[in-house]
Amino acid sequence: MRALPLRSSALTALACLALVACGAPEPPEGDYPAVFHDAAAADDVEAPDSGPASDLVPDGTWVMWHETSTCVKVLSIHLESVTQTLLLVKLQSSPGGVVQHTSRDCLIEQTPIVGVSTTIPLAVVESIPSQNYVAVLSGSQPGATYSTQRNVELWAMNLTDPEFEELPKEATDPRVYDQDNDGNPGATLILGANQCSMYVVQRAIAQWNGKVESGTRIAGMGNNITTQIVLGATGGFCASQYDTRNPPDTARFVMQRVDGLHGALNLDTNQDGEVDCEEVRAYGSAPFGPREPDNARCEPQP
């Protein structure tokens, strides 16, 4: 037996050298250039502050779409006009399932009657006072019920008792004001291809009942009564006061969360941190499946 001197120290030194040299290198930059069509870019490095959830969390920004029916009697014929309305709604939860709503009208469109459409200009739509009302949610999971209080929307007038007070008939009534600031009383609507203008006040009373369909969607039916008074017109049939009514059980609505939270669609396309009416109008009513007018709905019931 003889001892063999080994150069273990050399091996150790080699190992130490290797340790210094073998750290993970700087990762490569990659061959893919940055592109800027993606609103979610650069979000990937951080874990989300809230994950996807099937439960509905009301607080946030929603779009309310509702569809109402108006029957108009023209020359003994009953015709239906369908009104599509898009509203931007901020929801805030309160204890007991109460949800505070603050809504703004963004777009109102009506189907034509005998080929003549009524245009509600954006100046009118955007000058409708915002509405504050509450709803009650029975739960946060699909199937939970959603019921709003009766909500009154007034155009171009101030009423002491918004729901029951008699509406003004004259443009000189002190309760009437120039809502769209066009120099004419009330709100100015345009018929046809600018054939004539009508100056109106309007009261719309609505109450909605629905169910939670998902964490980002509530849908259901409602009841509405809309009364419109023509205060004046530029001429023609704009000056006519037509006999109108709202048939029962024809109004429906959808509440769609649109702020990108909790798995929702994000309509904030300009990435300014808020969804505005312009973005809601760009989204439009089409995703909610509006229906065509059906005059049979307006036939008088026997």
Partner: peptide
């Protein structure tokens, strides 16, 4: 492992439902 920085514009967008 060390991951390269992601370039902008390749994330999976939020297309809702």
């Amino acid at each position: 492992t060390r991951l390269s920085e992601r370039p902008a514009g390749y994330d999976l967008p939020d297309l809702g439902a």
